[in-house]
Amino acid sequence: MFTLHDIWTFFLAFFLTLPLVTIVHEAGHVLVARIFGAKIKFAIGTGKKLFNIGPLEVNRMYFMEGWCQYTELKYNTVWSHVLIYLSGSLFNLIVILLMNFLIYQGVFPVHIFFYQFVYFSVYFIFFSLFPYRNGEGKPSDGQAIYDVIKYGKAEDPID
């Protein structure tokens, strides 16, 4: 049952944990795109821009969504695009496995933060790889993977 005692947990989940999961996801796209020689721009949040840190844009509603845009791949193949689109979810999965291993080893305590982090990461993986287009016509990572395999070209930005 949700009580007033749970309000702090709610705020921490949505204003700290979820943005951290988003950053991990986008970092996966950024790292792999950079490996393939791309120029990167990425953001967390939506709405008006608060500030930039290098290629990272942080927007006012930083706790809602994220995106990564890349151009000028040095190694521009269908499979390089597939790996870039897949890498956000792979990073989320790697962090889930690492976090669970560290909890199992006693390095991290069993704590609601880690539970929520894993929960939101699984949510991100599922909805990133589920093929669909949002209301603006932008593809999910799964849809982008399907499109690049079927049509041989990528569509930017990636989520």
Rank of each mutant, 00 (worst) to 15 (best):
V95N: 03
G37D: 09
F91L: 07
F108W: 10
I96W: 03
F113P: 04
Y115R: 06
A27G: 02
F117Y: 13
W67A: 06
K39W: 11
A27P: 04
K48Y: 12
L12F: 15
G88Q: 11
G106K: 10
C68L: 03
F15T: 04
F63C: 03
I103Y: 08
V30R: 11
L98R: 06
Y75N: 14
C68N: 11
L18H: 05
L20Y: 08
I35Y: 14
T17W: 09
P19K: 11
I84D: 10
N76L: 10
Y85H: 06
M61F: 07
V32N: 07
L50N: 04
V82K: 00
F63H: 02
E57D: 15
I112D: 04
E65P: 04
E65C: 14
L97R: 06
F14E: 02
S87K: 00
F51K: 04
G45H: 00
F42W: 12
A38R: 08
F15C: 02
T71G: 05
L18G: 07
K49L: 15
F14L: 12
K41P: 03
I35G: 03
W79F: 14
K41E: 12
L86A: 12
P19I: 13
G45M: 08
G28E: 07
L16K: 04
V107D: 05
V110E: 14
F63G: 08
L31Q: 04
M61S: 07
V122I: 11
H29F: 01
A43M: 02
V107Q: 08
A13G: 15
